[in-house]
Nucleic acid binder design. Structure first.
Lengths: 204, 204
DNA sequence: CAATGTGAACAGCTTCACAGCC
DNA sequence: GGCTGTGAAGCTGTTCACATTG
């Protein structure tokens, strides 16, 4: 395929494909056609073919996509072929839930540090991590962690984001219901549960 | 404005506008221009004007949008002008975090029931709700609840979704990392935290 | 023959430019 | 003068149709 800018929407679908291919692999299915995959994911077959073709020709005509190697290709495209360490800020109920979320491992994510500002939580253990004082976020610099998950109250979110960016964090998954002001080089994804729920009544 | 199909993307932004207008109201600001609002939300002014104009002419030329009445208009468009009762299924760590999430009230959501399948949790109180047995989901029929938040493990999600739909639920916010098969009349929104995180390394 | 890969047509959303109004 | 409301232009992403290949 000649040069094309890869649509953001395509990138957003890639983890979906990775999950699907990973599951197929555990089921020992060796190949899958765009048709079959589309049925599973409720997408259109040409969509899947076009998405994958942006990154190369992974499939075999007449056969479909080889499950195992395509999974590896996507993993490598998304840079998930190396274990990605992430820091969690906020050890409240939501933070604790996330720390124990089993779904991260499929994508190679590893919660490598946890911070909070509450003295009752600092020093406690969550999973394999000791909760550290949020004032020590700057020590992340030396630990080569680039991703952060922000699970703090909205009024603390911007301050934590600033500290994280100061400590070399390059990507933030923000779970607070607020907009974060960050330099352009930092990528932020905000998930606002109440806002997502907010559109449901309109549709029903 | 003549008839136009309202873009889904516009609907998705409406709760964002509602939140912004609600906050402005607490700050006693009486009007706001699309320019000012765009700066806050990091959008383009014409985007905001077009979005709002799909639903009517709320603004005043030369002045901007009246904060209070526009907030009410959006609330009414999104059907959030009446308190929306929702049921939470899953009283694990994530479910508990969600039950105590303070952000729902701004949109008029009220967690009116909680279900789980774990005998250790059934009968306990979370917030103002007693945790009920998931086998009793069918009793929702009589309670006039139309929205559900699904915070159960992926392998239980489809079963719970089926039971919820059976009990008259019309919209589901699915927090499990899986696709739900539902009739077309039911609206599902899936939030998959690991998948959202999965795109970050690509961008950094 | 079955299924991919892809240019081209199409659809949907965003941005622009400006007319209209306060 | 300032700002909304909106048709039209522009752009991005999706779908189609089919040539291509194992």
């Amino acid at each position: 395929m000649k040069y094309h800018k890869i649509p953001d929407e395509t990138i957003k679908r890639m983890p979906m494909y990775l999950r699907a291919f990973s599951i197929l692999k555990t089921q020992n299915q060796e190949t899958i056609s765009s048709q079959q995959l589309a049925e599973r994911l409720h997408l259109n077959p040409p969509q899947i073919r076009k998405d994958l073709s942006y990154f190369g020709a992974f499939g075999t005509r007449g056969i479909g996509y080889p499950v195992s190697s395509t999974a590896e290709q996507i993993r490598s495209i998304l840079k998930l072929d190396v274990s990605q360490q992430a820091v969690l800020v906020g050890a409240g109920r939501l933070g604790t839930a996330i720390a124990s979320y089993p779904g991260f491992s499929m994508f190679g994510f590893d919660i490598a540090a946890i911070f909070d500002n509450d003295n009752n939580k600092i020093g406690k253990t969550i999973g394999k991590n000791l909760v550290e004082n949020v004032a020590e976020i700057v020590t992340l610099k030396a630990r080569n962690i680039r991703l952060a998950i922000l699970a703090v109250p909205a009024n603390a979110a911007q301050g934590c984001a600033d500290a994280l960016i100061d400590a070399g964090i390059k990507g933030i998954l923000n779970l607070s219901p607020c907009y974060l002001n960050v330099p352009k080089r930092v990528k932020v994804i905000t998930i606002d549960i109440a806002m997502e729920l907010g559109i449901l009544p309109y549709y029903i």
